[in-house]
Every structure is written in structure tokens, then in C-alpha cells.
Write a protein that binds this DNA or RNA. Structure first.
Length: 851
DNA sequence: GTTGCCAAGTTTTTT
DNA sequence: ACTTGGCAAC
């Protein structure tokens, strides 16, 4: 399928400028296809680049930036926005490389802004804190902090957390924030009892955040968008500074991000002297003018994306931002990059046939001029362990064939699938790393340490304060804390202030008052009484972190735990705390190297007088708050990478295995169970699968397990409809499950002709034997199951009548004493040695012992 | 005030 | 199965 690249649709319009004959630009244009070149050279005015998977998108963006710089555009006039730190870092690096190699003497790329939406917003909000209604030293709350705060708020409103689970209330609030709806407008739309209460929570939650001097992730975007919208001066300053805006992965922008980009781009007129015409370039700093082109072509906004790779709809991303871009920017140039330089033809063909099943889509031809290549493989295994073995084995054989570990990856829909895979890789001695950037900072001990640091940086941070005020135990009990909270609430002051005034609380005993006072003076010692100066303050972040971990007693607490329990994990906790100190030290060093706050026109005004140590601490905490899983992917490591399909976006690997290609997992059950308009969610799942497939350069393996153990119970599965949508002759299909399942009525012949076809054709009601049906397999022993005389315990409670003999994998044989019904039936079972225990039948893995 | 045990929710994807 | 939060005993 080697098509000839079509000519660019526009009948060769006169180039906006004559092609530069500078040496550097020749190297920038080398190896580019005509459409790529067009995108790189596009002058002023809006441009939409529809970049198919593997079409050299990053290359186009980086070369375009390098080209702009080569044309005399000042680095600080360019703003490039991405979704992950990793993408931003990579882009920065590649631009640096390009400039190094071009002899243009472009110099360092100081002031060039290449960052994520969230990091940009954090920065803008610190600089324009006042306009945004914030204090510049705000803390960024992650979802855990959000939950805690939200829960407190719900309780404060006398609502039950059973009827209003913080998680789901938060997701409603998040959705509202993504739509730029504040608490008032949300309340205005609320009609029913439930949403009216959610509106109340929203309002109180927003107030609580401000009171804690904190923002959540959504606030970063929402408040920035609102500030830009309402404050002409802020908007003007941003527009004056950034004259060229580039947005990567534009298909994944939500409404807030769309507006932020739109407002920074402005309408294309120069902010202060908007005179159109040649030579009009003005800029506030009086620097040299960028290349001459007629003004009035509209804003210099360049967005790059691919509607077929839109996978964040669930997070409020609005695909119409990219689909309707042309309407929002009339006269914008549209450039389509369709040629794929990444994958072999057979892999590309599989991807293409799959994505063609999406109805709501702008079709783009995917093509490559490369010939040959192996067909993708699709393998059915008997269970997830066999699947993991097959994958490990496959990777090994690839390695033996000469591929480096770092060029291989395993993708899955949900994080929970990684565990079995890990075990297998360990057993096979395959080096691997899991892309889970946040894992380290999510550990209890690290969160506790960070809790202290956050209180040090922002004493108003109530969530962090309540986490650490009595960890380790220092005699500040729950009742004491409640008394402090009541005081804080009454006098509308932050918790930390209330702590200082503990002595005034009448019904607090002397011991508690002393304990609180001691705690307060401890914090003061670290902050130098808020000055972050003085003889006791070293000025080093790592030293501060180390001090806090030791002097708080945290480290001692975990050391004691470790020696008491002798458990591996407790010893690890101490190591992790030490690791945190190293991470701070590393940050400190890198920060010193890159900090250009002094040169940065955007340096936060509100923080000019911030002591350096405090500034460093805040930057450190912010960098932690904004890490993503995908950020930790480090290709220099010689190991196989494991990650979710979402995290895989934007990456490429020589060999890719996608595991868990099953109904309910790859089209995730959440996307199938509630069919929304036009199967939108199902189509997003298909795009997710498409993203996974198109990451593979040379080899692709997709696996499906007949049985998968979910939360401890083996479930029969159905191969993913997506496998059925790729013709069998386009893949190498193999069924490796037979050997394990002789005694099982396996549907022979894989997915080409059976269940998946029926299921896949339409989102019709699936047969009750489908994925997730807990009784689907009642009475049938899974091939690897327990002894032949038993069946897995997952049916109704009638399987275990009172008096029957059962076997528990851990406790041995016992007698059922009583059964309780309900949603999750439980049984009281008396075991021989242990005595009676209550267990949930569904999970207990009980096996009936025949009388 | 602290420690230990039980009950409940949990697992879709992320800045 | 596994973690987390609330309650009861020490």
C-alpha cells in the first residue's frame, strides 16, 4: 500500500516569504515531505496541522520552532504547549539539538517557553495571583488531597458521604470546572435534589480550597482561563510576550485549554500598536522585529493533532476543538500529514482497518512507502498467567533477534494488569520498568514527609496539616484537632493560626496545649519563623528536607517500625525517605542550572521578595504535583517499558505487546455498558487501541486470555471486538490456549468466527455469558482451577448451605455456620484451628468439600 | 490517647 | 484480594 503522497490541496500559493537561503534552514528542511515543509515554513496566521500517527509531528513542531528562531523571532516570543512534562522536555531537547547543529549561532534557547498547560497555568497564576483571586504561594492539591477536603466539606454541610461519595461529587465538580462553570452557574443549572446538593458542595469546596490557599488541578486551568478572559491587562501582557503559539496534541484539549490558547493567541493584532501592514512589528521589550509578513492574517497559532488519537474525552477533552478549528480561525491554513514514517505496512494496515470502524471521524489515508514487514500477531491464551508467559517469551525472542530491551514495550488498558506481567518478566529475567511517575510520591511515608514540607511552604494548607499534625503521634488527639478546627472555623483563620492560639481554647487540657505549642515551634524552627533565614537555616533544600524528616520524628518512626516488624516494606520506607532527600538534592542542582527566573519576564511578580529557599521549596513541591506517569519513561534505560495505553500516546517502540485484548477490558466495560450518543465512548476505546497499535514500528503482538482473574476470581472472557475488526488474514492468529484447556469447551478457532463477531457487530445486549457475568461459569472448573471435586465459590449463597463443609485456601476446612444475604453475601465459617470467621463469599475463594 | 481490629470500597484512563 | 477509614479496647 504505497501511495504517492498527494499534492498539497492549495494550488501552490505563493510562499509567504522567499525560502531562506541560509545554511541552517537547509538543514532544517532536509528530509521533509512537501506538507511537512509547508508546516515548518508557514509564516504568520493560524495553521492546523492534522498529523496522522507516526507522520513526523514532533519533528515538524521542533523544526518549525527552530525555523522561527532562525528567522529572528526571539525565543521568549514563542510558547509551545504540551500535555506532559516528558513531551515538553523532549521537545526542548530536540530544539536544542537542532540549534546546535545549525551554524546560525542562534545561541542558547533562553526564554523559550516549552511547557505543559498545567505548568504554564501554575506559573501564570503565581504571577497574576492577585488578579486571579489567589495568593501567590498557593499549594496544588492532588486528587487525594481533593478527596480529603471534599469529604470534610460534605460532612460540614451535614450531608452523608454515603449518598454523596466524595469521589463522585468531585468528578461532577471536575466536569463543571472543565466546562468553565463556577459554583454559581452550576447552582443555577441544578434542578433536582442531588445536583442542588452537589452545587452546595461545589461552593463550599471552592471556598475551602481558597481558605487553604490551595488550588486543584482543574482550578489551574479554570482560574487561568477566567483571569485571561476578565483581565485585559493580564491578557495583553501574555499576548505581548508570546507572539507565536504552538499547541501539541490539540485533539485532547478541553474547553478551558481551548480558551487559554485562544486568548493567549489573541486576534493577531499587535497588542499595543495594532496597525496592520508591513513593518508594524512592535514589541514591549523593543527587541528586533520578527520576519516581515503582512499583519492581520490572524493570530500566530499553530495547532497540531490527530482526531483519531483523541483519548481524553472522559476528562473533558472536546474533539470539536480540533474539528472546528477552521471555523474559529477563518482563513487558517490546513495541512495534512498522512504519510507514516514509523510503522511497517502490515501494522499500519491493521491500524487503518480498525480505525475505519469509527463512524464519527474525518477520514485520513494512512500510508507508507516502506515495503515489507511482519504481520501483527494475535494470540489467544488460556489465562493471564499464560498470557504473561507468552509475552515474556516473545520479548525474549525479539531480544535474541537483536532488539534492545529499551525498544520494547507492553501496553494495557488498566494498571491492574501490570502485576501478573511483572511477575512473569521477573521469572524470565527480562529487565523492565513501569511507567508510573507518581508511584514514589504516592507512598505513605513520602506523602507524610511532603505533608510537612507543604505545611512549611504554606501554613494554610489544612489538608497537609491534618495529615501530619499527629504523625508520628505527639499527643495531639482527634478531639484536640477538632477543637483547633472549630477555632479556625469560628475565627476564619487557617489551621496553623489556630494552633498558635491553642492556649485560648478553654476545654483543652494542659498537656494538649503543650503538645500543640511544641509542634508549632518545631515548624517555626524549620521556617526560621517564616523568614527562611537565620543561623539555623542552611539555604539548601535537601538539608531542609533532611531536617524535616529527622526532626519531625518521621524517620525514627519508620526505623522503629522496621525493626519491630522486620518486614521488607517497612525497611523500604526508611530508604524512601532518604531517597526523597536525594530527589530534593537533585532538583536543587538542576534548578540552579536551569533557573532563569532573573531573566524571565514572566517571573512571578508576587514572589519577588521570596527568600530563595522558600522559592526553591515551592518549585520543588510544584514539580512533584505536576508529574505524570508518562513522565517517568526513560528510554535510556535498558529495559522493557510497561505502561497504560493512555501513557503510550506520543511514544514509539520497535516492538509492542498489547495485553488484555478482551471485551470489558479493551473496550472497557464502562464504555460498553452505558451507550452514549453515537457510541462515543466505544469509539474512544477504539482510538485507544489504535494509539497502541500505531506505537509499534516493526513488531506487534496482541494477546487475549480466555480466563482472567479479576479481584481474585477467575472470569471467562470474550476476545475484544477490536481483534474481530481486523481481518484474520491481516494478522498471524494463533490459539495457544488449547493445550491448557483440553477439558474445556473452548470455542475453537479464535475470534474469527464466534463470540466476538456476534458481540462486535452491534452494541446489542450481550449474551448473559459475557464478560463480567459472575455466574457465567458456575459449575465449570477453569482449566487451571482447584481440585476436580470443587467449583469456585462465586455463585449465589445457596452454593454453601449452612452446615456444609468448605475449604479455604488459607484456613483449611471449615463448616458454614450462617449465611447473610444482600448485595455481597457473607458467611460465618468455623474453622478447625482458627475458630469462626466472617467472609465475603464472592472473594473468599471457598471450595465446597463434598460430603 | 494510642493501638489494633473490622467494614467498606475498590479498579479506567491523568495533569 | 487489598487498602483505607472508623470504632472499640487498652
Amino acid at each position: 500500500m504505497d501511495h504517492v503522497p498527494e499534492n498539497s490541496p492549495s494550488p501552490s500559493p505563493p510562499r509567504p516569504w522567499t525560502a531562506p537561503r541560509l545554511g541552517p534552514d537547509d538543514s532544517l528542511l532536509k528530509d521533509l515531505t512537501p506538507p511537512q515543509r509547508e508546516a515548518v515554513l508557514h509564516g504568520e496566521g493560524p495553521v492546523l496541522v492534522l498529523a496522522a500517527a507516526g507522520s513526523g509531528k514532533t519533528r515538524v513542531i521542533t523544526r518549525r520552532i527552530a525555523h522561527l528562531l532562525g528567522q529572528g523571532v526571539k525565543p521568549w516570543q514563542i510558547l509551545a504547549l504540551t500535555f506532559t512534562n516528558k513531551a515538553a522536555g523532549e521537545m526542548r531537547e530536540r530544539i536544542g539539538h537542532l540549534l546546535e547543529h545549525s551554524a546560525s549561532g542562534a545561541g542558547p534557547v533562553r526564554g523559550l517557553t516549552v511547557t505543559t498547560f498545567h505548568a504554564l497555568c501554575a506559573r501564570l497564576l503565581r504571577k497574576y495571583a492577585e488578579a486571579a483571586g489567589l495568593k501567590p504561594d498557593f499549594t496544588i492539591y492532588d486528587s487525594d488531597d481533593q478527596s480529603k477536603l471534599c469529604k470534610k466539606v460534605i460532612e460540614g454541610l451535614q450531608l452523608s458521604t454515603a449518598n454523596f461519595p466524595p469521589r463522585s461529587v468531585l468528578s461532577a465538580i471536575s466536569r463543571a470546572k472543565n466546562e468553565l462553570m463556577d459554583a454559581e452557574s452550576f447552582a443555577a443549572r441544578a434542578t433536582d435534589f442531588s445536583s442542588k446538593n452537589v452545587a452546595r458542595v461545589y461552593k463550599a469546596y471552592a471556598a475551602a480550597l481558597r481558605n487553604a490557599n490551595a488550588v486543584d488541578f482543574d482550578d489551574l486551568l479554570l482560574l487561568t482561563a477566567r483571569t485571561l478572559e476578565r483581565n485585559a491587562q493580564v491578557r495583553g501582557e501574555c499576548q505581548a510576550r508570546w507572539r507565536y503559539l504552538l499547541v501539541d496534541e490539540y485533539q485532547d484539549t478541553n474547553r478551558a485549554q481551548f480558551l487559554i490558547a485562544q486568548m493567549i493567541a489573541g486576534d493577531g493584532s499587535a497588542p499595543k500598536s495594532g496597525l496592520p501592514g508591513a513593518g508594524d512589528e512592535d514589541d514591549a521589550a523593543g527587541a528586533a522585529a520578527p520576519p516581515k509578513t503582512a499583519r492581520g492574517k490572524g493570530p500566530n497559532i499553530c495547532v497540531v493533532g490527530d482526531p483519531d488519537q483523541a483519548i481524553y474525552g472522559w476528562r473533558g477533552a472536546d474533539i470539536s476543538n480540533i474539528l472546528d478549528f477552521e471555523e474559529g480561525y477563518p482563513g487558517c491554513r490546513v495541512i495534512t500529514l498522512g504519510e507514516n514514517f514509523r510503522s511497517t505496512a502490515p501494522i499500519l494496515e491493521a491500524a487503518d482497518t480498525l480505525i475505519r470502524h469509527n463512524k464519527r471521524r474525518k477520514h485520513k489515508d494512512l500510508f507508507t512507502s516502506r515495503k515489507g514487514g511482519e504481520k501483527p500477531e494475535a494470540t489467544l491464551t488460556s489465562n493471564e498467567k499464560a498470557e504473561a508467559r507468552v509475552v515474556a517469551d516473545w520479548l525474549k525472542s525479539r531480544h535474541e533477534a537483536g532488539a534492545a530491551w529499551r525498544d520494547m514495550a507492553i501496553f494495557y488498558r488498566t494498571n491492574s494488569l501490570s502485576r501478573v506481567m511483572e511477575e512473569s518478566l521477573r521469572a524470565f529475567n527480562v529487565p523492565y520498568t513501569i511507567a508510573r511517575g507518581t508511584a514514589f510520591y504516592d507512598r505513605e511515608e513520602v506523602r507524610n514527609a511532603l505533608g510537612y514540607l507543604r505545611v512549611v511552604a504554606n501554613p494554610a494548607d489544612g489538608v497537609s496539616l491534618s495529615r501530619i499534625i499527629n504523625t508520628p503521634a505527639r499527643g495531639i488527639s482527634k478531639t484536640t484537632q477538632e477543637a483547633l478546627e472549630a477555632l479556625a472555623q469560628r475565627d476564619e483563620m487557617p489551621m496553623m493560626e489556630a494552633c498558635r492560639g491553642a492556649g485560648q481554647i478553654a476545654d483543652l487540657n494542659a498537656r494538649a496545649v503543650v503538645a500543640v505549642a511544641k509542634f508549632v515551634s518545631q515548624i517555626d524552627a524549620w521556617t526560621g519563623g517564616g523568614t527562611f533565614m537565620g543561623a539555623d537555616i542552611s539555604g539548601s533544600l535537601a538539608d531542609l528536607v533532611d531536617r524535616v524528616i529527622r526532626e519531625s520524628g518521621l524517620r525514627a518512626m519508620y526505623v522503629a517500625q522496621a525493626s519491630a516488624s522486620k518486614s521488607e516494606t517497612d525497611a523500604e520506607r526508611v530508604d524512601n525517605l532518604d531517597e526523597l532527600v536525594s530527589s530534593a538534592r537533585q532538583f536543587e542542582q538542576e534548578y540552579d542550572a536551569t533557573a532563569d527566573a532573573a531573566n524571565d519576564p514572566l517571573a512571578a511578580d508576587g514572589l519577588v521578595d521570596t527568600p530563595p529557599l522558600l522559592a526553591l521549596l515551592r518549585a520543588y513541591l510544584e514539580s512533584i504535583a505536576l508529574v505524570a506517569d508518562a513522565d517517568s519513561v526513560d528510554p535510556t534505560q535498558g529495559s522493557v517499558t510497561l505502561m497504560t495505553l493512555h501513557a503510550a500516546k506520543g511514544l514509539e517502540f520497535d516492538s509492542v505487546a498489547i495485553i488484555g485484548m478482551e471485551e470489558g477490558l479493551l473496550p472497557h466495560s464502562r464504555a460498553i455498558s452505558m451507550p452514549v450518543a453515537g457510541d462515543a465512548e466505544l469509539e474512544e476505546e477504539r482510538r485507544l487501541c489504535f494509539v497502541g497499535i500505531t506505537r509499534a514500528m516493526k513488531r506487534l503482538l496482541m494477546t487475549s486470555a480466555k480466563y482472567r482473574t479479576i479481584r481474585g476470581i477467575p472470569e471467562r472472557t470474550i476476545p475484544s471486538r477490536f481483534l474481530g475488526e481486523i481481518p484474520d488474514n491481516a494478522m498471524v492468529v494463533s490459539d495457544q490456549s488449547e493445550s491448557f484447556a483440553e477439558d474445556y469447551d473452548a470455542p475453537a478457532g479464535g475470534w474469527g468466527n464466534d463470540a466476538s463477531r456476534n458481540v462486535g457487530s452491534r452494541a446489542a445486549p450481550r449474551p448473559s455469558s459475557g464478560f463480567g457475568g459472575s455466574n457465567a461459569n458456575a459449575g465449570q472448573a477453569p482449566p487451571w482451577g482447584a481440585s476436580s471435586s470443587s467449583s469456585p465459590a462465586r455463585g449465589p449463597s445457596s452454593e454453601f448451605p449452612v452446615g456444609s463443609k468448605v475449604r479455604h485456601p488459607q484456613f483449611g476446612v471449615g463448616i458454614v455456620e450462617s449465611i447473610s444475604g444482600g448485595a455481597s453475601p457473607r458467611a460465618v465459617i468455623r474453622f478447625k484451628d482458627i475458630g469462626s470467621k466472617t467472609m465475603v463469599l464472592e472473594y473468599a475463594r471457598l471450595v465446597r468439600v463434598q460430603p
